[in-house]
Nucleic acid binder design. Structure first.
Lengths: 237, 237
DNA sequence: GAGTTCAAGATTGTATACGTTTTCAATAAA
DNA sequence: TTTATTGAAAACGTATACAATCTTGAACTC
C-alpha cells in the first residue's frame, strides 16, 4: 500500500476518462440539445450498436449520466432519459437562483479582457444558432453561457454544481417550457456581458437574478409529451 | 422506442443500485470514518477479493465514488482515495458556508417534533461515539447531522449537494485539521437543535454560519500524511 | 555508485459469455 | 371485449477472458 502525493488535479481525472466515452458525450449532447426528450428509453444494445462499442462502455457512460441526473437507471429495467418532476424542476431553479447571482457578481469582479471577448464570441454563436433555427444547439449554448460565467468566478466547486444544474435545466425546459421563443436570452446575455465588461458586480448579480426569475416564471408544471422518432434518429447529428 | 411516463422518483433510482454495492457502501464509510486516508491506493483486485465480488462491481462502486470526489480515477493507473488540494478544501467550505446556513434557516421553520427528536437521538449517538473514543465514527455521525438538517429543510436538490460537500469534508479534515478534539461540535450541534425546537430561523442560520466558520478556521493548508497499514486493515470494521 | 534498459509481473481497459429478469404478444378463459 | 396466463425473445446483471498499459527490479552501462 502506498500514499501517493497527487498533483492538484485542476480538472477532474474522471473527466479525462469520460470525454473519451462516446456514449457519455453523445447522449449528453443529445439531451442538452433536446434531441432526446425526457423519458426516452436508452437500451444498452442500441447504444452499443450506434456508437460501435461494447455494453461495458455504454454502462460506464450511462452511470455517469445517471450521477448527473440526466439519465434514470432502474434495476433490471435499464436506462432512460430523466424525467424531472415538477418538484425537482422547481428545486433546480431555486438552487440556480441561489448560486448563480452570487457567481455572476464574483465573475464581474474578476472578468478580464479575454473573458469578455470569449463571452461575446459565445453570444455571437448563440445568436447564429438562433438565426439558423437550430434551437437545440441554441439551447445548449445558452446553458453553456451560464457555465462560462460560473467558471470566470473562479470557484470550481460551485461552477461544477452550476454546470450540473444547468444541464438538468435542458430537460426541465423540454418538459415545462411554455413560451415559444427564447429571444429574451439574447438581450439578457448581452446585458450581462456589458456588466462584466464594466466590472459592475452589483449590476451583474441583479441581472443574473432577474434573468433566472424570468426563466423560472416561464415554466408551467402541467404538461406531457410524446413522439415516435427512433433512438437512432435522435442521436444522429 | 417509447416514452415512459415515470413516477416522480422520490429518491434517486441510482441509489437503489448503489446501496447494494458493498464496495460503494464499504469504501464510502471507511473514507467518512477516516480509516482510509487520502491518497490510499484502491486496487481493483484487492477490493474484489475483500468484498467477494467481481471487478465489475468494484468498478461500478469506484466510479460512483469518483463522481462524488471521494475517489480519484486516473486512466490506466487505477483508483485512490481522493486527496483534495488546499484550494478544493477552501472551496468546499466556502460552498458549505453559502448553502448550509440558509438550509438551517429553512429547516428551523419546518422542523417538527419528530425531526427534533431524531436530531437529539442522533446527537446522543455522536456523543457516545466521542466518549468511547471512536473518533472515526463520531466524525461520520457529525457529518450526517448536517445532512439531516439539510433534509429537514425539504429541498432535496440542495440537500444532495450538501451531502456531497459534507462527505468531502471528511477527507479535508483528515488532511488539514489542526485541533486535536472536535469537542466544539457537541455544543454547536446541541445549540442548533435548541434553535430548531424553538423554530428560531434567524438563530439557526447564524449558529450554522458560525459553526462552519469555526470549522473552516481550524484548517491549516500545509500538512502531509503517511502510514503503512494494509488496505485490509483499513477496510475491516 | 548512479542512472538506464528491459523483461516479467501486476494492474487496468474492454469485450463477451451466460444466468436472471423483464417485456410482450399470442392464447385462453371469463 | 376484457382480463389472465404463459412462454419466447429481448434486455439487464455479473463474472471472466484476454489485450493493453503500467510498475518493478535486476542486469547492465558509464
Amino acid at each position: 500500500m502506498s500514499i501517493s502525493q497527487q498533483e492538484a488535479s485542476f480538472s477532474r481525472r474522471l473527466d479525462a476518462d469520460l470525454v473519451q466515452n462516446p456514449v457519455y458525450t453523445g447522449v449528453e449532447r443529445a439531451i442538452l440539445e433536446q434531441r432526446l426528450p425526457p423519458g426516452t428509453r436508452l437500451a444498452e444494445t442500441d447504444l452499443a450498436d450506434f456508437y460501435g462499442v461494447s455494453r461495458t462502455i455504454v454502462r460506464t457512460g450511462l452511470q455517469a449520466l445517471a450521477h448527473s441526473h440526466l439519465v434514470t437507471l432502474r434495476p433490471n429495467r435499464g436506462a432512460s432519459v430523466a424525467n424531472p418532476s415538477p418538484r425537482e424542476a422547481r428545486e433546480v431553479f431555486e438552487a440556480r437562483e441561489l448560486l448563480e447571482p452570487r457567481s455572476a457578481r464574483e465573475a464581474a469582479l474578476r472578468a478580464g479582457r479575454a473573458d469578455v471577448r470569449a463571452l461575446r464570441l459565445h453570444a455571437q454563436e448563440e445568436h447564429e444558432a438562433m438565426s439558423s433555427n437550430e434551437s437545440g444547439r441554441a439551447l445548449r449554448l445558452s446553458g453553456r453561457f451560464h457555465v462560462m460565467i460560473a467558471q470566470i468566478a473562479n470557484q470550481r466547486t460551485i461552477a461544477e454544481i452550476i454546470e450540473n444544474l444547468v444541464s438538468r435545466s435542458s430537460l426541465i425546459i423540454a418538459l415545462y417550457w411554455t413560451r415559444s421563443s427564447t429571444r429574451c436570452d439574447e438581450g439578457c446575455h448581452n446585458a450581462l456581458i456589458d456588466a462584466m465588461e464594466r466590472n459592475d458586480a452589483v449590476e451583474a448579480e441583479e441581472l443574473m437574478r432577474s434573468h433566472l426569475v424570468e426563466l423560472h416564471s416561464a415554466l408551467r408544471f402541467d404538461i406531457g409529451d410524446s413522439s415516435n422518432k427512433t433512438l437512432k434518429d435522435m442521436l444522429s447529428q
